[in-house]
């Protein structure tokens, strides 16, 4: 299982690019962290999610 934004998901083996696209994220508008390290956008296609990975997917929202 892969922990994505706090939720366990059955995504191991998928590339990050495939996961984002299947889940419905706009990859151009998010930033992704894997095990507390940033994944550069150019690496989304070659990054394969593994069991035990902790993924954070973030975006900008209104704030002060």
């Amino acid at each position: 299982m892969v922990k994505i934004n706090g939720k366990e998901e059955n995504a191991a083996g998928k590339t990050l690019a495939a996961y984002l696209s299947e889940a419905g994220y706009d990859a151009s508008r998010v930033a992704v962290e894997r095990n507390e390290s940033i994944v550069a956008k150019k690496d989304y296609g070659s990054t394969v999610l593994r069991d035990g990975d902790n993924i954070e997917i973030v975006r900008f929202v209104g704030g002060g």
């Binding site: 934004n5 706009d26 900008f60 929202v61």
Partner: peptide, 27 residues
């Protein structure tokens, strides 16, 4: 200023579409 938060796939609107391009973002 803007904040960084976990993304979700339910909200399709993005704040960046509402901020004019000549404005500098301060996360």
């Amino acid at each position: 200023t803007v904040a960084v938060r976990r993304a979700n796939t339910k909200e399709q609107e993005n704040i960046l579409d509402y901020i004019p391009k000549n404005v500098t973002l301060l996360p």
